[in-house]
């Protein structure tokens, strides 16, 4: 078996080599969580935006002297005649009670509480149908009708989601910059600590590229080691969050829908960290070495 050639510059024995993997592990952990947050929010915002354009909820408020079934039949008739309406679903009264029980608690909805009948209406884009125009057209023939305008609060929700998405992207970028700064600092420190060794290497004809290669190799190995550690913890955390989110049963809360391609993206974070560390170490070392005689 070939004998392993030892590192010419003994960087592995320095203090930075001991703490740097842990720093990288923490950075990768935070970056993976932030990136997962971006992916989750992105999918949630897309879902909310889809919901706002193709569904409206019509509410038939209870009237004392009118038959509920007759009013629903009339509503079906009116909606069925409208262009742009692609689907109608009358929400069962039990579903409405379920929704209210989220607020009042199970079994706490009084039986004499006047409840509206809800009708989900699917609309196609391009027909100018929105909550306001639909309400106007329905009220002419059917009193006590309101149309729930989900657009406004879904818009706000999507805006908040998008802002959080940008914030998470900014966090990922900041973590990357912090990693670059850490590598610059430790490379400079390494050059300072091993100045005598580097001078000797120069005296026996080593070019700057040869010396820089020692630093870039070390930075890459430390980045990879820390990165793998970080992603293991991050995946464990995401798995835990997924379990918790699964128990919430809240329809609007985003689940953790991380697609296969997204897992590949997350797994690439340690590799990207190692590459960033390697390139930063090389460029820093070349710049510092150029100052030496």
């Amino acid at each position: 078996m070939a004998r392993r050639v030892p590192a010419v510059v003994p960087l592995g024995r320095d203090a930075p080599s001991r703490f740097l993997p842990w720093v990288f592990a923490l950075m990768v952990y935070l970056a993976v969580l932030a990136l997962a947050g971006v992916l989750i929010l992105h999918s949630a915002v897309e879902r909310w935006q889809r919901g706002e354009v193709d569904t409206l909820t019509v509410q038939l408020m209870p009237l004392e002297d009118a038959s509920e079934d007759a009013r629903i039949a009339k509503l079906r008739e009116l909606l069925g005649a409208m262009e742009g309406v692609t689907g109608i679903r009358v929400v069962a009264q039990s579903e409405t009670i379920d929704l209210i029980e989220h607020w009042l608690g199970e079994g706490n909805v009084p039986s004499d509480l006047p409840l509206p009948r809800l009708v989900d209406v699917n609309i196609a884009p391009g027909y100018g149908l929105d909550a306001e125009s639909l309400a106007l057209r329905l009220r002419a023939s059917l009193p006590g009708v309101t149309v729930d305008d989900a657009k406004l609060w879904l818009d706000r929700l999507a805006d908040i989601g998008r802002s959080l998405e940008y914030l998470a992207i900014a966090v990922v970028i900041l973590i990357g910059l912090a990693a670059v700064a850490t590598v610059i600092f430790t490379t400079r420190m390494g050059i300072s600590i091993h100045r005598n060794v580097i001078e000797l290497l120069h005296l026996i004809g080593a070019r700057d590229g040869y010396v820089a290669a020692q630093f870039q190799r070390q930075a890459m190995m430390l980045g990879l080691r820390g990165g793998v550690l970080g992603i293991v913890f991050a995946v464990a955390t995401l798995y835990g969050l997924r379990q918790v989110a699964g128990r919430l049963e809240t329809p609007l809360a985003p689940d953790i829908p991380i697609a296969n391609w997204a897992w590949v993206l997350l797994a690439a974070v340690p590799v990207a960290t190692a590459l960033i560390a390697m390139v930063t170490a090389r460029l820093t070392a070349l710049k510092e070495l150029a100052k030496m005689p």
């Binding site: 030892p6 010419v8 003994p10 060794v197 290497l201 120069h202 005296l203 026996i204 004809g205 080593a206």
Partner: peptide, 29 residues
Amino acid sequence: RRGIGVVFQDYRLLAHLSALDNVALPLRV
């Protein structure tokens, strides 16, 4: 510098490398 061999008064051997690896340095470089 690659055309110059130097024997330093204080040897300037790298403490973490064996005799073999110290002597091998100029060749590896």
